[in-house]
Simulated scan of single mutants.
Amino acid sequence: MDPAMQRRPDLPRPVESLAAKLNWLRAGVLGANDGIVSTSALMVGVAGAGTGIGGILTAGLAALVAGAFSMGVGEYVSVSSQRDSERAAIRRERALLDTDPEGQVDQLAHMYELRGLTPRTAHQVAVELTEHDELRSHLDVEYRLDPDDLNNPWAAAFASAAAFTLGSLVPLLAALFAPTAWMPWPIAAATLVALLVTGIVSARIGGSGKRLGTVRVLIGGTLALVGTYAIGTLFGSPVH
């Protein structure tokens, strides 16, 4: 058995499903946070070089498109690799069940013993579950894997790209509706407010302290804005 494919067998499936949903939500928040910071930092850097509003919006739109595609492709590749591993685990388990069904029952019983059942009870549970659905029972305990509910790389790619796009719209809208003479301050202000929101949401999802999580996000975003603005001011050339 591949240790990398091991899943914890100590949680019932309803809790695992909730955890999976929270992971998706957390990934969405992080994707939006990436869109906010990377797009606004680029726009602030361009504004620091003395670029007009047209150049600022062009830079922001380019950052949105490039970042969304990058996030989507990266997520697609990552989830596709994970799904390939899941399919490989299913094929291995089917082969083992075909060639050594009794040994697989003993293995399943042993895993239930490790979870606290007596040998007799563990063996009885393993036999009954195998009779009911041998493949699903083994995949559930050994890998926490549902053969009918594998990860969808296209859904993951779309979700990641969409989250990044929504985050990128924050600085773009701030630049579009704010007076040009005030640039880049409206972008920076909108960015910090948005990061404040994502920091609170991330802390709530992760169950950590809101203050600490928010401070981390704000510090990171502020450093990115200051750094790109300094680069734009010191080395940039105006683009109108």
Rank of each mutant, 00 (worst) to 15 (best):
N151W: 11
A181W: 14
E128K: 04
I90F: 05
W185A: 14
V73N: 01
R13C: 07
Q6M: 05
A63W: 08
V105E: 14
A178K: 11
L234G: 09
P186D: 11
A20E: 08
W154L: 14
E128W: 05
A159N: 11
A68I: 00
I231C: 07
A181V: 12
S237E: 07
L117V: 14
L18F: 10
L25D: 00
L135Y: 04
R211C: 11
G50W: 09
L117G: 13
T118M: 10
E128V: 09
P119Y: 02
A157D: 11
L218S: 05
Q124N: 11
F235V: 03
A20V: 07
V46A: 15
D10C: 11
E142M: 03
F235C: 02
E113A: 13
V197W: 13
G207M: 14
S160A: 11
G167A: 07
E93R: 02
L176T: 02
R92M: 04
H240C: 01
D106K: 04
S40V: 09
S40Q: 12
T99G: 12
A95I: 01
A63C: 02
A190Q: 09
L172Y: 03
H240I: 02
L64H: 08
A159W: 11
V79D: 05
T191G: 15
P186M: 10
D149V: 13
A47D: 09
L61K: 10
T118H: 07
R8A: 12
A189R: 14
D34L: 06
L61E: 12
R115K: 11
N33E: 04
G60D: 03
A189H: 13
G236D: 01
L22G: 02
D34W: 02
G227W: 14
D106S: 15
I205E: 03
A49S: 13
Y112A: 11
A203H: 04
F235I: 00
A66Y: 09
P9S: 12
L42T: 04
S80L: 07
L212V: 15
F164E: 05
Y229M: 14
M5C: 06
E75V: 01
E113W: 13
V77K: 01
S168V: 05
V77A: 01
H240S: 00
L135P: 02
L18M: 10
L172I: 09
L57N: 10
G103I: 00
A126R: 01
A95H: 04
A66R: 04
F235T: 02
P171M: 06
L196R: 07
I205A: 06
N152W: 09
G220N: 15
Q107V: 07
T198M: 06
L135E: 00
T222F: 12
I231Y: 09
S40Y: 04
R94M: 05
G45P: 08
T233V: 03
P153I: 15
G199C: 06
V29W: 01
A194S: 04
L30Y: 03
I231P: 09
R7F: 11
M1S: 06
G31W: 01
R83L: 10
R144Q: 03
P14M: 03
Q82L: 02
T180G: 14
L192N: 15
A189I: 10
G35D: 00
W24F: 14
A178T: 15
T228I: 11
S40A: 13
G116V: 14
L11R: 12
V79H: 03
R92H: 03
Q107Y: 13
S38D: 00
L64Y: 09
E142R: 05
A224E: 08
L97G: 00
T165G: 07
T191N: 09
S17T: 13
